[in-house]
Design a protein around this nucleic acid. Structure first.
Lengths: 113, 113
DNA sequence: GATATACTTGCATCCACATGCAAATAAATA
DNA sequence: TATTTATTTGCATGTGGATGCAAGTATATC
């Protein structure tokens, strides 16, 4: 079996690793999108209550959204006394998205070549 | 009002434009993820029936998934006689993802600076 | 220790969506 | 035109997820 024949499979597995469903699930809700955009515009981390002010839903729901985003490695959290500070890991998310873009184009080239 | 003060708003709007909910909604389903990965591994477009063979669900459901992905500009479709050929617009999707990554890092820099 | 503040979690409800089956549409062929 | 093939769409069902309220947990202050 030549390396050439293995390329398609290597491609799909690379894409399969890159296309993590949890990431897209985390980003497919409009409230979570607005949370990400809001945190991206801040220089510092924000508390749950601060973030909830911009969402229009109960803060308990915001807390759940923040957990989903944190579990998907989109946000970082850190307890500070009574409050919990959430911040956007912009660099990590950007790198993940670029990794998907790279995998897509790698597949395209391998499939065509 | 200085340009410096407008930066945060410009940032959020740039991100708001980049973070299209429809794109993430389209990619948050595991069947649609597998469709994208499958099409990425092919050199040519595929019919609905061909794609359905890899999904494990009824072809009518696959047809709906393909429509969702096409509406989100992830796939291109073209009728060829009785069949409809779907193909992945890998370059476009990669560019969109890189655009989000760029907007994220631009926001981060503006918020910090 | 008691109280207040900040957040998380349990519970019930509601809505969006994925799915399968069947019918409808589009297009080629007999 | 009738029939077959390929895809789409209508309909009903089931499931997952978002939401609000209330209760529970964690931390600080009195």
């Amino acid at each position: 079996m030549s390396a050439r024949q293995q390329l398609p499979e290597a491609c799909t597995t690379a894409l399969g690793d890159a296309l993590q469903p949890d990431l897209f699930k985390a980003l497919c809700d409009p409230v979570r999108i607005s949370i990400v955009a809001n945190l991206a515009a801040r220089a510092e981390a924000a508390t749950v209550s601060e973030i909830a002010d911009c969402c229009g839903i109960d803060f308990s729901g915001v807390s759940r959204h923040l957990k989903i985003l944190r579990d998907a490695s989109v946000l970082l959290s850190q307890r500070d006394g009574r409050q919990v500070l959430y911040s956007l890991d912009a660099g990590s998310l950007a790198a993940t998205l670029r990794g998907i873009a790279d995998a897509l184009e790698m597949c395209e080239q391998q499939a065509a070549g």
